[in-house]
Design a protein around this nucleic acid. Sequence first.
DNA 1: TGGATTGTACTATTCATATAGTACATTAGC
DNA 2: GCTAATGTACTATATGAATAGTACAATCCA
Lengths: 130, 130
Amino acid sequence: MLETAVISIDHSSGVPLYRQIVDQVLLAVSTGRLKPGSRLQTVRQLAIDAQINPNTVSRAYRELDIRGFVRTRRGTGTFIVGDKGVARDEARHREAVEQFCNQVLADAGRLGLSLSELVASLQDRLTERR
Amino acid sequence: MLETAVISIDHSSGVPLYRQIVDQVLLAVSTGRLKPGSRLQTVRQLAIDAQINPNTVSRAYRELDIRGFVRTRRGTGTFIVGDKGVARDEARHREAVEQFCNQVLADAGRLGLSLSELVASLQDRLTERR
DNA sequence: TGGATTGTACTATTCATATAGTACATTAGC
DNA sequence: GCTAATGTACTATATGAATAGTACAATCCA
Protein backbone atom coordinates (compact mmCIF):
# COMPACT_ATOMS: atom_id res chain seq x y z
CA MET A 1 0.00 0.00 0.00
CA LEU A 2 2.67 2.45 -0.88
CA GLU A 3 0.68 4.10 -3.59
CA THR A 4 0.41 7.80 -3.10
CA ALA A 5 -2.66 9.65 -4.18
CA VAL A 6 -1.23 11.11 -7.34
CA ILE A 7 -4.53 11.57 -8.99
CA SER A 8 -7.11 14.15 -8.21
CA ILE A 9 -10.13 14.86 -10.27
CA ASP A 10 -11.59 18.24 -11.04
CA HIS A 11 -15.24 17.71 -11.72
CA SER A 12 -15.74 21.24 -12.94
CA SER A 13 -12.88 21.54 -15.38
CA GLY A 14 -14.77 20.20 -18.36
CA VAL A 15 -11.97 17.78 -19.13
CA PRO A 16 -13.17 14.18 -19.40
CA LEU A 17 -12.56 12.31 -16.18
CA TYR A 18 -10.83 9.30 -17.73
CA ARG A 19 -8.56 11.73 -19.48
CA GLN A 20 -7.62 13.57 -16.33
CA ILE A 21 -6.53 10.25 -14.91
CA VAL A 22 -4.48 9.30 -17.94
CA ASP A 23 -2.84 12.70 -18.14
CA GLN A 24 -1.96 12.78 -14.49
CA VAL A 25 -0.42 9.35 -14.53
CA LEU A 26 1.64 10.19 -17.60
CA LEU A 27 2.77 13.39 -16.01
CA ALA A 28 3.63 11.71 -12.74
CA VAL A 29 5.70 9.20 -14.65
CA SER A 30 7.49 11.87 -16.63
CA THR A 31 8.34 13.81 -13.52
CA GLY A 32 9.53 10.72 -11.73
CA ARG A 33 6.80 11.04 -9.17
CA LEU A 34 5.65 7.57 -10.15
CA LYS A 35 8.50 5.16 -10.67
CA PRO A 36 8.60 1.78 -12.38
CA GLY A 37 6.89 -0.69 -10.14
CA SER A 38 4.80 1.92 -8.37
CA ARG A 39 1.31 0.72 -7.73
CA LEU A 40 -1.63 2.86 -8.68
CA GLN A 41 -4.68 3.16 -6.52
CA THR A 42 -7.08 0.31 -7.15
CA VAL A 43 -9.90 0.92 -9.54
CA ARG A 44 -12.42 0.86 -6.76
CA GLN A 45 -10.39 2.98 -4.39
CA LEU A 46 -9.72 5.73 -6.87
CA ALA A 47 -13.37 5.64 -7.82
CA ILE A 48 -14.26 6.27 -4.21
CA ASP A 49 -11.59 8.90 -3.63
CA ALA A 50 -12.45 10.81 -6.74
CA GLN A 51 -16.15 10.14 -6.43
CA ILE A 52 -16.47 8.72 -9.88
CA ASN A 53 -17.58 5.46 -11.37
CA PRO A 54 -15.22 2.47 -11.27
CA ASN A 55 -15.88 1.91 -14.95
CA THR A 56 -14.40 5.31 -15.66
CA VAL A 57 -11.25 4.50 -13.73
CA SER A 58 -11.00 1.14 -15.40
CA ARG A 59 -11.26 2.76 -18.76
CA ALA A 60 -8.42 5.10 -17.95
CA TYR A 61 -6.21 2.30 -16.65
CA ARG A 62 -6.95 0.20 -19.71
CA GLU A 63 -5.89 3.04 -21.96
CA LEU A 64 -2.66 3.41 -20.02
CA ASP A 65 -2.14 -0.33 -20.30
CA ILE A 66 -2.70 -0.33 -24.03
CA ARG A 67 -0.30 2.54 -24.41
CA GLY A 68 2.22 0.56 -22.43
CA PHE A 69 2.70 2.80 -19.45
CA VAL A 70 1.21 0.51 -16.88
CA ARG A 71 0.70 -3.17 -16.52
CA THR A 72 -2.52 -4.37 -15.06
CA ARG A 73 -3.10 -7.75 -13.46
CA ARG A 74 -6.41 -8.93 -12.17
CA GLY A 75 -6.49 -9.61 -8.52
CA THR A 76 -3.27 -7.73 -8.06
CA GLY A 77 -3.50 -4.20 -9.23
CA THR A 78 -2.04 -1.76 -11.71
CA PHE A 79 1.63 -0.92 -11.79
CA ILE A 80 3.92 1.44 -13.61
CA VAL A 81 5.87 -0.43 -16.25
CA GLY A 82 9.62 -0.77 -16.07
CA ASP A 83 11.38 0.73 -19.01
CA LYS A 84 8.55 2.54 -20.70
CA GLY A 85 9.11 5.14 -18.06
CA VAL A 86 11.99 6.57 -20.00
CA ALA A 87 14.05 9.04 -18.13
CA ARG A 88 12.12 12.24 -17.65
CA ASP A 89 10.76 13.37 -20.95
CA GLU A 90 11.57 17.06 -21.24
CA ALA A 91 9.26 17.74 -24.14
CA ARG A 92 6.36 16.14 -22.36
CA HIS A 93 7.18 18.01 -19.24
CA ARG A 94 7.23 21.38 -20.94
CA GLU A 95 3.96 20.52 -22.59
CA ALA A 96 2.51 19.68 -19.20
CA VAL A 97 3.61 23.00 -17.80
CA GLU A 98 2.00 24.76 -20.73
CA GLN A 99 -1.27 22.93 -20.32
CA PHE A 100 -1.28 23.44 -16.62
CA CYS A 101 -0.77 27.16 -17.07
CA ASN A 102 -3.54 27.27 -19.60
CA GLN A 103 -5.86 25.74 -17.09
CA VAL A 104 -4.71 28.11 -14.39
CA LEU A 105 -5.36 31.08 -16.64
CA ALA A 106 -8.77 29.83 -17.59
CA ASP A 107 -9.68 29.34 -13.96
CA ALA A 108 -8.28 32.72 -13.04
CA GLY A 109 -10.22 34.37 -15.81
CA ARG A 110 -13.40 32.85 -14.57
CA LEU A 111 -12.70 34.22 -11.13
CA GLY A 112 -11.75 37.61 -12.47
CA LEU A 113 -8.15 37.40 -11.35
CA SER A 114 -5.59 38.98 -13.61
CA LEU A 115 -2.49 37.30 -14.91
CA SER A 116 -0.22 39.99 -13.58
CA GLU A 117 -1.44 39.75 -10.03
CA LEU A 118 -1.14 36.00 -10.14
CA VAL A 119 2.42 36.20 -11.28
CA ALA A 120 3.13 38.78 -8.62
CA SER A 121 1.67 36.66 -5.88
CA LEU A 122 3.43 33.51 -7.00
CA GLN A 123 6.68 35.37 -7.36
CA ASP A 124 6.43 36.55 -3.79
CA ARG A 125 6.38 32.97 -2.71
CA LEU A 126 9.44 32.23 -4.77
CA THR A 127 11.53 34.82 -2.99
CA GLU A 128 10.00 34.00 0.36
CA ARG A 129 11.25 30.46 0.13
CA ARG A 130 14.58 31.22 1.64
CA MET B 1 -12.48 45.89 -37.49
CA LEU B 2 -10.27 46.64 -34.55
CA GLU B 3 -11.04 43.40 -32.82
CA THR B 4 -7.93 41.40 -32.16
CA ALA B 5 -8.04 37.66 -32.31
CA VAL B 6 -8.09 37.11 -28.57
CA ILE B 7 -9.61 33.71 -28.80
CA SER B 8 -7.89 30.56 -29.88
CA ILE B 9 -9.41 27.16 -29.62
CA ASP B 10 -7.63 23.98 -28.70
CA HIS B 11 -9.53 21.14 -30.25
CA SER B 12 -7.56 18.53 -28.41
CA SER B 13 -7.72 19.89 -24.88
CA GLY B 14 -10.92 18.16 -23.92
CA VAL B 15 -12.36 21.41 -22.66
CA PRO B 16 -15.71 22.23 -24.26
CA LEU B 17 -15.30 24.69 -27.09
CA TYR B 18 -17.93 27.15 -25.93
CA ARG B 19 -16.25 27.14 -22.57
CA GLN B 20 -12.84 27.91 -23.98
CA ILE B 21 -14.37 30.95 -25.61
CA VAL B 22 -16.05 32.14 -22.45
CA ASP B 23 -12.95 31.61 -20.36
CA GLN B 24 -10.68 33.38 -22.78
CA VAL B 25 -12.92 36.39 -23.00
CA LEU B 26 -13.17 36.60 -19.23
CA LEU B 27 -9.42 36.34 -18.95
CA ALA B 28 -8.85 38.97 -21.61
CA VAL B 29 -11.19 41.29 -19.77
CA SER B 30 -9.58 40.70 -16.42
CA THR B 31 -6.14 41.40 -17.85
CA GLY B 32 -7.31 44.48 -19.69
CA ARG B 33 -6.54 42.97 -23.03
CA LEU B 34 -10.15 43.53 -23.91
CA LYS B 35 -11.42 46.89 -22.77
CA PRO B 36 -14.95 48.20 -22.44
CA GLY B 37 -16.26 48.82 -25.92
CA SER B 38 -13.92 46.33 -27.58
CA ARG B 39 -15.64 44.39 -30.28
CA LEU B 40 -15.39 40.64 -30.37
CA GLN B 41 -15.00 38.73 -33.58
CA THR B 42 -18.33 38.12 -35.24
CA VAL B 43 -20.00 34.83 -34.60
CA ARG B 44 -19.36 33.70 -38.14
CA GLN B 45 -15.80 34.95 -38.29
CA LEU B 46 -14.73 33.27 -35.10
CA ALA B 47 -16.46 30.12 -36.26
CA ILE B 48 -14.32 30.20 -39.38
CA ASP B 49 -11.10 31.12 -37.62
CA ALA B 50 -11.52 28.47 -34.97
CA GLN B 51 -13.04 25.98 -37.36
CA ILE B 52 -16.07 25.40 -35.25
CA ASN B 53 -19.80 25.78 -35.69
CA PRO B 54 -21.36 29.24 -35.49
CA ASN B 55 -23.91 27.86 -33.07
CA THR B 56 -21.14 27.06 -30.68
CA VAL B 57 -19.77 30.59 -30.84
CA SER B 58 -23.24 32.01 -30.45
CA ARG B 59 -23.79 29.90 -27.40
CA ALA B 60 -20.61 31.21 -25.82
CA TYR B 61 -21.45 34.83 -26.61
CA ARG B 62 -24.94 34.38 -25.24
CA GLU B 63 -23.55 33.07 -21.99
CA LEU B 64 -21.21 36.03 -21.74
CA ASP B 65 -24.14 38.31 -22.43
CA ILE B 66 -26.30 36.72 -19.76
CA ARG B 67 -23.47 37.02 -17.28
CA GLY B 68 -23.17 40.66 -18.18
CA PHE B 69 -19.68 40.78 -19.60
CA VAL B 70 -20.64 41.59 -23.13
CA ARG B 71 -23.52 43.24 -24.86
CA THR B 72 -24.70 41.76 -28.08
CA ARG B 73 -26.69 43.57 -30.73
CA ARG B 74 -27.99 41.99 -33.87
CA GLY B 75 -26.59 43.40 -37.02
CA THR B 76 -23.87 45.14 -35.07
CA GLY B 77 -21.80 42.69 -33.14
CA THR B 78 -20.74 41.80 -29.63
CA PHE B 79 -18.97 44.26 -27.40
CA ILE B 80 -17.35 44.29 -24.01
CA VAL B 81 -19.57 45.98 -21.48
CA GLY B 82 -18.60 49.18 -19.73
CA ASP B 83 -18.36 48.96 -16.00
CA LYS B 84 -18.75 45.37 -15.07
CA GLY B 85 -15.59 46.18 -13.16
CA VAL B 86 -17.70 46.95 -10.12
CA ALA B 87 -15.96 48.77 -7.35
CA ARG B 88 -14.29 45.83 -5.77
CA ASP B 89 -13.33 44.99 -2.27
CA GLU B 90 -9.56 45.05 -2.36
CA ALA B 91 -9.05 43.04 0.78
CA ARG B 92 -11.39 40.35 -0.36
CA HIS B 93 -9.78 40.33 -3.75
CA ARG B 94 -6.28 39.88 -2.37
CA GLU B 95 -7.59 37.07 -0.25
CA ALA B 96 -9.04 35.44 -3.35
CA VAL B 97 -5.72 35.70 -5.13
CA GLU B 98 -3.96 34.13 -2.17
CA GLN B 99 -6.35 31.25 -1.98
CA PHE B 100 -6.25 30.69 -5.68
CA CYS B 101 -2.47 30.59 -5.64
CA ASN B 102 -2.51 28.13 -2.79
CA GLN B 103 -4.68 25.85 -4.85
CA VAL B 104 -2.44 26.26 -7.87
CA LEU B 105 0.62 25.37 -5.85
CA ALA B 106 -1.05 22.32 -4.37
CA ASP B 107 -2.08 21.10 -7.79
CA ALA B 108 1.31 21.79 -9.27
CA GLY B 109 3.01 19.98 -6.45
CA ARG B 110 0.89 16.94 -6.94
CA LEU B 111 1.79 16.95 -10.60
CA GLY B 112 5.45 17.42 -9.93
CA LEU B 113 5.70 20.88 -11.42
CA SER B 114 7.92 23.34 -9.70
CA LEU B 115 6.92 26.80 -8.62
CA SER B 116 9.77 28.39 -10.47
CA GLU B 117 8.94 26.88 -13.82
CA LEU B 118 5.31 27.86 -13.36
CA VAL B 119 6.24 31.43 -12.67
CA ALA B 120 8.58 31.39 -15.64
CA SER B 121 5.90 30.11 -17.96
CA LEU B 122 3.29 32.53 -16.72
CA GLN B 123 5.73 35.39 -16.95
CA ASP B 124 6.38 34.59 -20.57
CA ARG B 125 2.75 35.13 -21.27
CA LEU B 126 2.83 38.50 -19.60
CA THR B 127 5.50 39.76 -21.93
CA GLU B 128 4.06 37.98 -24.96
CA ARG B 129 1.08 40.28 -25.02
CA ARG B 130 1.74 42.09 -28.23
C1' DT C 1 -35.77 51.57 -49.50
C1' DG C 2 -33.08 47.61 -50.05
C1' DG C 3 -29.26 44.76 -49.41
C1' DA C 4 -25.56 43.15 -46.58
C1' DT C 5 -24.17 41.93 -42.10
C1' DT C 6 -24.89 40.38 -37.64
C1' DG C 7 -26.84 37.47 -34.10
C1' DT C 8 -30.74 34.04 -32.97
C1' DA C 9 -34.06 30.14 -32.99
C1' DC C 10 -35.19 25.77 -33.99
C1' DT C 11 -35.02 20.94 -35.12
C1' DA C 12 -32.59 16.97 -35.77
C1' DT C 13 -28.69 14.16 -35.39
C1' DT C 14 -24.37 12.25 -33.95
C1' DC C 15 -20.94 11.28 -30.72
C1' DA C 16 -18.38 11.07 -26.38
C1' DT C 17 -18.71 10.69 -21.65
C1' DA C 18 -20.33 9.07 -17.44
C1' DT C 19 -23.16 6.37 -14.78
C1' DA C 20 -25.63 2.15 -12.69
C1' DG C 21 -25.91 -2.46 -12.04
C1' DT C 22 -24.66 -7.05 -12.54
C1' DA C 23 -21.86 -10.76 -13.36
C1' DC C 24 -17.49 -12.76 -14.17
C1' DA C 25 -12.19 -13.78 -14.28
C1' DT C 26 -7.88 -13.71 -12.18
C1' DT C 27 -4.77 -13.51 -8.48
C1' DA C 28 -2.96 -13.63 -3.72
C1' DG C 29 -3.00 -15.45 0.60
C1' DC C 30 -4.84 -18.06 4.33
C1' DG D 1 -9.73 -25.26 -1.61
C1' DC D 2 -11.79 -21.00 -0.03
C1' DT D 3 -12.18 -16.23 0.31
C1' DA D 4 -11.23 -11.63 -0.53
C1' DA D 5 -9.46 -8.37 -3.53
C1' DT D 6 -8.57 -6.98 -7.98
C1' DG D 7 -9.67 -5.73 -12.79
C1' DT D 8 -13.09 -6.64 -16.76
C1' DA D 9 -17.24 -7.26 -19.66
C1' DC D 10 -21.62 -6.23 -20.71
C1' DT D 11 -26.03 -3.85 -21.17
C1' DA D 12 -28.66 0.00 -20.59
C1' DT D 13 -29.39 4.74 -19.80
C1' DA D 14 -28.77 9.68 -19.37
C1' DT D 15 -26.56 13.82 -20.44
C1' DG D 16 -23.70 17.28 -22.64
C1' DA D 17 -21.50 18.99 -26.56
C1' DA D 18 -21.02 19.82 -31.25
C1' DT D 19 -22.68 19.85 -35.67
C1' DA D 20 -25.71 20.68 -39.92
C1' DG D 21 -29.11 23.08 -41.99
C1' DT D 22 -32.55 26.37 -42.43
C1' DA D 23 -35.01 30.27 -41.49
C1' DC D 24 -35.61 34.51 -39.21
C1' DA D 25 -34.74 39.22 -36.79
C1' DA D 26 -32.35 43.36 -36.00
C1' DT D 27 -29.16 46.72 -37.47
C1' DC D 28 -26.33 49.40 -40.44
C1' DC D 29 -25.31 51.82 -44.46
C1' DA D 30 -25.31 53.29 -49.15
